[in-house]
Simulated scan of single mutants.
Amino acid sequence: MPINPHRDYTRQEQLALDLTELFAEGLRDEEGRLPLALQGIGSAAMAMQVEEAGVPLPMFNRMLTTANEISLERAGAMPEELVEELEKRGFPQIARIVRAGIAACRDEDDYRNFVRWLIQVRNLIVFRAQALRHRTSDQP
């Protein structure tokens, strides 16, 4: 199912989206920015899928730190550097999405956009966790 960036998706729909489809159109739009589908529904759905899978935030942060420190050449040659811990600890679906993102990168600019997308996903996870803590602390 193609992902429509102008449509509202339910939580269940976001959890069921095949996010690897997002990379088929590339990681940059005509202006060199993240495509709208990646910025919106893609980021939100990935954050929900990471949370639903139970990936600990420190593990996601380690992967993100490594992704930020290495080049596309290295990530393409050794994607295990980014996904090995995810795969070993039982999060193969998240690792598959990361592998697909790396594979979709045509050049270093694409890879940098992919890393920016992962940062955006991480930020959404943090914001959602903070909102949840705030909501539960407000209840008597």
Rank of each mutant, 00 (worst) to 15 (best):
V126R: 11
Y9E: 03
S43M: 10
M48C: 07
R116I: 11
A67H: 00
G40W: 04
T65V: 14
V98A: 03
V55R: 03
Q49N: 08
N123T: 14
E87T: 15
V55K: 03
H134W: 13
T136N: 14
H134Q: 13
T65L: 14
I119Y: 12
E52Y: 11
T20G: 06
L38C: 08
E69R: 14
P2G: 07
A45T: 07
P35G: 04
Q49H: 06
V50F: 03
T136V: 15
M63K: 05
C105K: 00
G90M: 06
R133S: 11
D18K: 09
L38R: 05
Q49M: 07
I102R: 01
R112N: 00
V115Q: 00
P79S: 06
N113K: 01
L118W: 03
L19Q: 00
K88C: 15
V126H: 09
A131Q: 11
E31D: 15
C105R: 01
D8Q: 12
T65P: 08
R106C: 06
R96M: 11
E108M: 03
Q139D: 14
A37V: 10
I102N: 00
P140A: 14
C105Q: 00
I102Y: 02
P58Q: 04
L36K: 12
T10W: 04
R133E: 12
S137G: 09
E69S: 13
V115W: 01
I125Y: 06
A129E: 12
G54A: 06
L19I: 04
G101C: 02
T65Q: 14
K88W: 15
H6N: 14
I125L: 11
T136E: 15
T136P: 09
S137L: 12
E31Q: 15
L118F: 02
N4P: 08
S71N: 04
S43D: 07
Q14F: 06
L57Q: 13
T136L: 15
M48Q: 12
E51I: 10
Q12W: 09
L15T: 03
A53L: 08
R7Y: 10
L15S: 03
A103M: 08
E108F: 02
N61G: 13
Q120G: 11
S71T: 12
T66L: 12
L82D: 05
N113F: 02
I94D: 04
Y111V: 00
A44G: 09
I102H: 01
A95S: 09
G76R: 07
G90W: 06
R28D: 02
A75Q: 07
V115P: 01
C105T: 01
A104E: 01
L38T: 05
L22V: 03
F114S: 00
N68R: 13
R122D: 10
L27V: 00
L64I: 06
I70D: 02
W117T: 00
F23N: 04
A47V: 04
R96Q: 14
L38Y: 05
R62K: 14
P92S: 09
V50W: 03
G76N: 09
